[in-house]
Design a protein around this nucleic acid. Structure first.
Length: 232
DNA sequence: GCGACAG
DNA sequence: ATCTTGTCGC
């Protein structure tokens, strides 16, 4: 908990050294879990070039997973594994270090304004964007949760073209935390994009869109499918 | 007590 | 997250 607060002080919410028009590479990391063996998981780091082609991947098996997943505390479970993969890349293939990272989880679109993508960005000093497939629900009571879900349903119907989005604000202070973004013409459900670290929301949206051939951005799709394959 | 809640 | 199954479309 004290670690989180120390990291949070260093969070940066605007573009730092990022020129979306001349991105050379983009990275992603994903963790897949075994259903049969609760202590086993696989972490996969991928690097894609500016044409969204896979140019590097590395996977590590976790055999002693003990931390459970608790909603709102994803970073508590996954951060150490993401950090390990980045440290390894820095040691062995530093010339492949991506300009920007997509993280499977939210950035500031979070109860404490500091989700996994932000933790990861600050802890490793990387430019990160948070991407999640499901809406983050702030509300606690069943009643307000249901109304929040209904709100999302209504907002989803307003998305018509690729690149359309709706803002998601903090339920109390109303600050903008992220967007629900339509990434392909075919997809009914948006993805949820937020600032991770050292990146503005507009840049996060633009880069995420550039990465989408399908609903889920290519870097995350690659990391997800490779880590899942390693698990078998 | 049980299920739901980014993954 | 994980599992299954089926269905549609290229």
């Amino acid at each position: 908990m004290s670690v989180n607060l120390e990291l949070r002080k260093r969070l940066i919410l605007n573009d730092v050294d990022i020129d979306a028009s001349k991105l050379s590479s983009i990275g992603a990391i994903d963790v897949s879990y075994s259903k049969h063996d609760l202590s086993t998981a696989v972490t996969t780091l991928v690097v894609l070039n500016d044409r969204l082609e896979l140019i590097y991947s590395h996977s590590s098996t976790i055999n002693d997973l003990t931390t459970p997943y608790i909603p709102g505390f994803l970073a508590f479970r996954e951060l150490e594994y993401l950090k390990k993969e980045v440290d390894l890349l820095r040691e062995t293939k530093s010339h492949l270090m991506p300009d920007i990272w997509l993280v499977d989880g939210n950035g500031i679109l979070h109860r404490n304004g500091f989700g996994l993508a932000s933790h990861f960005g600050v802890a490793c000093d990387l430019v990160t964007i948070g991407v999640s497939k499901n809406p983050y629900i702030f509300d606690c009571s069943e009643l307000s949760k249901r109304s929040a879900k209904n709100q999302y349903k209504i907002l989803m119907k307003t998305l018509k073209n690729v690149g359309d989005y709706f803002y998601i604000s903090h339920p109390i202070d109303k600050t903008i935390l992220g967007v629900g973004l339509k990434t392909t013409l075919e997809s009914t459900n948006p993805i949820f994009v937020s600032i991770g670290h050292k990146c503005s929301l507009n840049t996060a949206i633009a880069i995420t869109l550039k990465c989408c051939k399908y609903r889920i951005p290519e870097p995350i799709r690659f990391a997800d499918s490779i880590s899942r394959r390693h698990l078998i």
